[in-house]
Nucleic acid binder design. Structure first.
Lengths: 168, 168
DNA sequence: TATTGTTATACTCTATAACTATA
DNA sequence: TATAGTTATAGAGTATAACAATA
């Protein structure tokens, strides 16, 4: 059909491969340190970090799930683990009895604070130290545009929830 | 202690977060298409793609594992899955009886060819379409430098294999 | 009826350690 | 002894579908 999908040229391939390799290595390193410093998976850290940043340290499950890519059941699972460790609490929302509000505890905040320096150090050592000031600005600007583009263009199967159009 | 790890400034955070979000979204989209188009995980696709590019379509397990980040057992597992599907073969190496040579089959090559257009389309739609020509070059150049930096700086626990220096 | 969240389940992936065989 | 690879095992994480409760 009209889609030729011509092969990518060298420059395109280079940017794509470099992006994936860099992010993969960085992710891997960060994962290792989160696990070592705080026995946290990346997702768990992200949940805690988002809560710590949120006003009042609290968010509804749905808002949390929207921020991450996560499935709802996956989030329930992770929230359960965090709750067991006393890092978050879950309670029904006042305004809407269906909703559950997740809140970071002081212990959770402390763990984030404990883990953050190592996290930052890894990012600095692996990523930031390789960037001159000019590169840093350029990288952020370019990737920011890409991110906006991606967010605007749902990847063709964005919300399986309420799937009212299955061409089956 | 002596590690100050001052917080990252806005520009640094921006670049870091943008990098991780962009790569995560891209990875997710690519994964979905590989699964849908060829029932392949990302790792499996990478294995096949590397083999398809290698001279003779063959590589030793070790060389394959070095390219990916993978543990050896993980690679054995994935290679086993690919072998079951007839996408690769495994046979002892002629020169070194300890080694195993993995080779793509014609079926494997066909599958790569079948999957590649969709893969490219995703990358194009999500990443490349957001980049002007100038940005593309800049992104590739910057990330290339970062990659070189990362490769040069082993992440502090690079090769658990033959660990002859454990400061334990 | 639509939305929010949980549960049950099943599966994929990954890593570790023990093991075999060859150099 | 060191290297190449496999196996057994065990655990973490994820998604799907069925479910209960509220709006």
């Amino acid at each position: 059909m009209s889609h030729e999908t011509a092969p990518l040229d060298a420059e395109q391939l280079g940017a794509y491969f470099a992006l994936m390799e860099v992010s993969s290595l960085l992710q891997h390193a960060v994962d290792g340190h989160l696990r070592a410093d705080g026995d946290l998976s990346n997702v768990q850290f992200q949940i805690l970090a988002r809560l710590a940043e949120a006003p009042g340290g609290r968010l509804r499950m749905t808002d949390l799930a929207d921020g991450l890519v996560y499935s709802r059941s996956g989030l329930t699972y992770q929230a359960g683990l965090l709750e067991k460790r006393g890092l978050v609490t879950r309670s029904p929302a006042a305004e809407d009895e269906r909703s559950v509000v997740v809140a970071v505890t002081d212990v959770g905040r402390a763990l984030v604070a404990q883990v953050l320096p190592g996290h930052i150090e890894v990012v600095r050592r692996l990523l930031l130290d390789a960037l001159e000031q000019r590169d840093l600005g350029a990288l952020g600007a370019i990737l920011g545009r890409v991110r906006d583009h991606m967010r605007a263009a749902p990847p063709r199967s964005a919300k399986p929830r309420a799937g009212r159009g299955r061409a089956d």
